[in-house]
Amino acid sequence: MAHRVFPREEYLLKGHVACPGCGAAVMLRHVLKALGPNTYLVIPACCTSVIAGPHPRSAFRVPVLHIAFAASAAAASGMIEALEKLGKPANVVVWAGDGGTVDIGLQALSGAAERGHNIIYICYDNEAYMNTGIQKSGSTPHGAWTTTTPSGNPGFKKDLPGIMVSHRVPYVATLSPAYPNDTFAKLRKAASMRGGLKYLHALTPCPPGWRYDPSLTIELSRLAVETGMWVLYEVENGVFRLTGPSRALLEKGKRKPVAEYLKLQGRFRHLSPEDVERIQRMVDENWERIAEMLKEGGEHSSEQG
């Protein structure tokens, strides 16, 4: 009875402008349900700049500050300081895409993290510049087709949660739209922690950008976790912990082969069996690092596929 467990109030209203099957839209609904109405969103240039709806209509039932691409973490910094000075406590939440986070927005994010503003920063990662038409970002996975990597991305996805852990922020966590219980627990924990930047990173599948049927968004989100390509975890005050279904995936045998995730997506269609094998090895090595880390007491983070 999901509608009895999770808040029924909608803060992302129907009639928004996300593409059919948008993973980010699912994630955003869950995030806002978890945070409630006393939440200010700061949104840089990204898909959500369009999803929000055309002026003077907005699909958001919370206040939203749209801001230039590189500027969201800085704008949120000033906003939370102002709200605190003016005696109006609230959640200040950046909702930014991967380009606005791992590329052009990284400097501002790093600064805000170092200064320790009491904000929540959420990166919804669809692994490329989707709003501008599927160009490679620093978060595009190895091998993926984009319009600017027509024969596959030669680089490797930046580990942004790891970079944020290195900033020693109080809370870093990963999210998936397929696991709302995990999402709600993490968002509520983040909102309850006063002081310091809380960083959350969600893998949000994109039907047009990843080249798959839009009905598969939740299925792909789930497969990303079940294959171990996307690891659900949290790092609370430096201590790493697997969460949700990822807790059961330390043994390689428990994880589905990455091919099950890759084969559903047109952006990986060109991969050779050797390419897939290489990606499988990368994922397995990451899990070995996670196992080592857990043995050592959980300091540090994992890298995502």
Binding site: Y40, V42, L65, I67, A68, A70, A71, S72, A73, A74, A75, A76, S77, G78, M79, I80, E81, A82, L83, E84, K85, L86, K88, Q107, A108, S110, G111, E114, R115
Partner: peptide
């Protein structure tokens, strides 16, 4: 409150965030 930012771009962005809620 003094927000000691990491760039001028962020200085103005921080003030945009602050002024947008009335500071």
């Amino acid at each position: 409150k003094f927000v000691r930012v990491e760039s001028e771009h962020s200085a103005m962005a921080a003030l945009i965030g602050a002024a947008s809620v009335g500071a």
